[in-house]
Every structure is written in structure tokens, then in C-alpha cells.
Simulated scan of single mutants.
Amino acid sequence: MLPPHDVYAVNAGGAAAGGFTADDYFTQGDVFSNVSQPVYTTDVYLAGPPEIYSDARQGGQFGYSFTGLTPGINYAVVLHFAELYFSMPRQRRFNVSLNGTVHTNIDIVSLAGGPFKATTLLYFVRADTNGIINVDFSRGANDQPMVNGIEVRVIE
């Protein structure tokens, strides 16, 4: 069953667009934008609005903290990606930690099948005892992490 609705939907590195709020809830990182080439979003599972894929938050290490959630409850966390700079697999590989569970060497070009193609990763994450989900990005095998959007969804 698909998660029915967002608690948070953030356009990482950009302005409000298509139901996603402007970039917020972050610590550290820089904004990157590439509007010279459109991003392909057709047939992407849980794709966000096309506008969120033309900008990103990136940096050696950065994170997002989503608060006010129900402690101990699982939420769906959807990470939205489109490679806006590199063109080949393995040029950017980074790690994502979701409340301490680390997923290593994420490669956007490999996941999406090329640059300027959107892709998503879906994780189920339990809010901690304070009702918080932290999404932290760090360097992996190559270059720095980046993300285009993040959703935290209620699961029913």
C-alpha cells in the first residue's frame, strides 16, 4: 500500500513547488541548480513535481531534521534524486543515514539510468522517542552527496 499523505515535503535547495515547501529543516550544505536541461520524470515511482529536480542541496556533510512526529511510529521517507552535474555511474557515491541506519554509496546515475533522470528511494523509518526523523548525508566513495527533495509520509 502506498503512503497516503505527506507530513513533510521539502524541495531541497529550492523554492516551494507543486506541494513541496521551500528548502527548510536543514543544517549545512550548499544549493546547486541546473535549469539548462530538463529532468526526465516519466515512469518514476513516487515522483515529485518536475520543478524539484532542477535544484538540490549538496555538500560534504549535511542533514535534515523532521520533528513533531509521533514517537515510535513508522513513516515512509521518500528521497528524490536527479544527477545534475555528473554524467557517468560511480562519479558521485554518497551515504544516507536515516535515524542512524546508514545506506552506503548511493549512485544516482546508476539508479536512474543516466543523468537528468529522476529517481526515488523509499525507506520506512521509525520516529525516535522524541518524534524526530533525522536524514543525514555524508561522503561515500566519490564526491559529495546531494538530494533534490525529501518527503516524510504517514503510513496507514
Rank of each mutant, 00 (worst) to 15 (best):
V44E: 06
A76D: 13
E83I: 08
A17V: 07
Y75H: 09
F137W: 07
R93N: 08
N148Q: 06
P115E: 14
I133P: 14
I155A: 12
R57V: 12
I150D: 02
S33A: 15
F116W: 12
G72S: 09
F20D: 02
T104E: 12
L2I: 04
R139K: 14
A22C: 02
G18L: 09
Y64L: 02
Q37H: 13
Y123P: 05
P115I: 01
A127Y: 04
P49I: 05
T104M: 03
G60R: 00
S138D: 11
T101I: 05
G48E: 05
Y85R: 14
D128I: 03
I150Y: 04
L69Q: 04
I106N: 11
G13M: 04
P4C: 01
T119A: 14
L98V: 00
Y25F: 09
N148L: 01
V152R: 05
T42Q: 15
T41H: 11
F81P: 03
T120A: 11
I133R: 02
D6K: 10
A16T: 15
T101G: 06
V78G: 01
P145H: 04
M88V: 15
G14Q: 00
V44C: 06
F86S: 13
A16I: 12
G113H: 08
M1W: 05
D107K: 01
G114P: 02
A15T: 15
L69E: 03
P3A: 15
M88T: 15
F62S: 02
I150M: 08
G19F: 09
F137C: 04
D128Y: 07
K117D: 07
N130A: 14
G19D: 08
G140K: 07
G113S: 11
D55T: 14
V39D: 00
Q28M: 07
S110F: 08
G114T: 13
A15W: 09
L111R: 15
L98W: 04
G131T: 13
Y75E: 09
V10F: 02
V152W: 09
G29R: 08
Y45E: 13
M146H: 08
V44M: 08
D43L: 14
P89H: 02
S33T: 12
I106Y: 03
N99C: 09
P71A: 05
G68L: 04
V102E: 11
I132L: 01
D107S: 09
E83D: 10
Y75I: 07
G13Q: 05
F94G: 12
V135E: 04
A112F: 04
V7P: 02
P4A: 07
Y64T: 02
Y25N: 15
R92G: 01
D107F: 01
R139S: 12
N99K: 11
N11L: 03
A56W: 03
T101V: 11
P3L: 06
R153M: 12
N105H: 06
Y53L: 12
D43C: 00
A82M: 01
A47D: 03
V31M: 12
F94T: 06
Q28R: 13
T27N: 09
L79P: 01
D24L: 04
G131I: 11
L79V: 10
Q58T: 00
Q58W: 13
P89V: 10
L111G: 00
V77H: 00
N142D: 08
F116V: 08
H5T: 02
F81L: 09
